[in-house]
């Protein structure tokens, strides 16, 4: 009986401690939770609800239209599919190019013999600190058909046959913009890869060297496999950014033009919401975009994990 009382008292004290612990944990979690619910969860749920209405963003009235907005976007709006296609092109080029450029550069910079390593790190990373809108403005000047640097250089070296209105030609504008985004972004991948390569097991590299592997083989067969998780992380991050973080650079240069050639889903959402006053419809596109990003991110991570 005495023992039982003692055991009960101990259990009670443990429970109280745990409860105190969980209460204090909750107190710590509460402020960010409030911020998260206010600025992420609530707007997201609200957007989903609006997507089922015909709200114009101005009047107090809104009518329930069910999946009408979704049907209109997916079945009737040609601009939606064009913007989606542009997003896919951006994601493919904009995800692979920075990784392909940054990986070997990071390998070169981390090579023991290279002098001025810090200089290169700084130079390559510098564009990352520029806001996307500024990147857009800078590249708008570079590509300008009247006084742009690119055409001037091409003319100066006798290649005037290649001068183009880079952002004015519907066939070139998107790729030109992606190139500027890659310039602005590859430095981020580069810094991550530099950091990751410093954790590559040197003994494996040395063993490969003793076995007669040349530098390319060591890079492909030893370094890259060890960077797999980092490459996945950078890839997913860039992939998501290819859908969601490209508004500024497009708005700062072409605003989706010429002739819709650089329209992507985020610029389309802005247009439909703020220019057409079709907030319900714009919300439906935003929800579709969110679903595409979430599903494709989860699938790509899972596939990578299964392979690993």
């Amino acid at each position: 009986m005495v023992r039982s009382n003692w055991a009960n008292a101990t259990a009670l004290a443990r429970w109280k401690r745990r409860r105190r612990f969980s209460m204090s944990s909750l107190l710590f979690i509460l402020p960010p939770l409030i911020v998260y619910v206010s600025f992420v969860a609530y707007p997201f749920v609200h957007t989903v609800l609006i997507s089922f209405t015909n709200w114009d963003g101005l009047s107090a009235e809104r009518q329930w239209v069910g999946f009408g907005n979704y049907a209109a976007a997916l079945l009737e709006d040609r601009q939606f599919w064009r913007a989606f296609g542009n997003n896919i092109w951006w994601v493919i080029l904009g995800t692979t190019a920075p990784i392909i450029i940054a990986l070997p550069l990071a390998a070169l910079v981390t090579a023991r013999k290279l002098k001025g390593r810090n200089f290169f790190r700084t130079v390559f990373f510098m564009p990352v600190i520029l806001p996307p809108m500024i990147v857009g403005i800078i590249w708008g000047w570079v590509y300008n058909p009247v006084f742009g640097l690119l055409n001037e250089v091409l003319e100066a070296i006798g290649l005037e046959v290649f001068t183009r209105p880079w952002l004015g030609d519907p066939n070139l504008a998107l790729t030109s913009l992606i190139a500027s985004a890659v310039w602005a972004y590859f430095g981020f991948c580069f810094v991550i890869f530099v950091a990751a390569q410093q954790n590559v097991d040197v003994s494996l590299l040395e063993a490969a060297e003793i076995d007669g592997a040349n530098s390319r083989q060591r890079f492909m067969k030893v370094t890259i496999p060890q960077l797999r998780d980092v490459i996945t992380m950078v890839g997913v991050y860039t992939f998501i950014g290819g859908f969601t973080s490209i508004f500024d650079i497009i708005w700062g240069t072409t605003r989706g033009g010429p002739a819709g050639a650089t329209e992507v889903l985020t610029t389309l959402i802005y247009r439909r919401g703020f220019e057409y006053h079709r907030f319900g419809y714009a919300s439906a596109i935003a929800v579709i975009l969110a679903v595409v990003v979430i599903v494709s991110s989860v699938v790509s991570v899972r596939l990578r994990e299964r392979k690993a």
Binding site: P145, V146, A173, G257
Partner: peptide, 16 residues
């Protein structure tokens, strides 16, 4: 007009 008018901004055109 100037070359590449779809890539020339309104302000740039005025500047010309």
């Amino acid at each position: 007009f100037p070359d590449g008018i779809n890539a020339v901004s309104y302000d740039e055109a005025n500047m010309l």
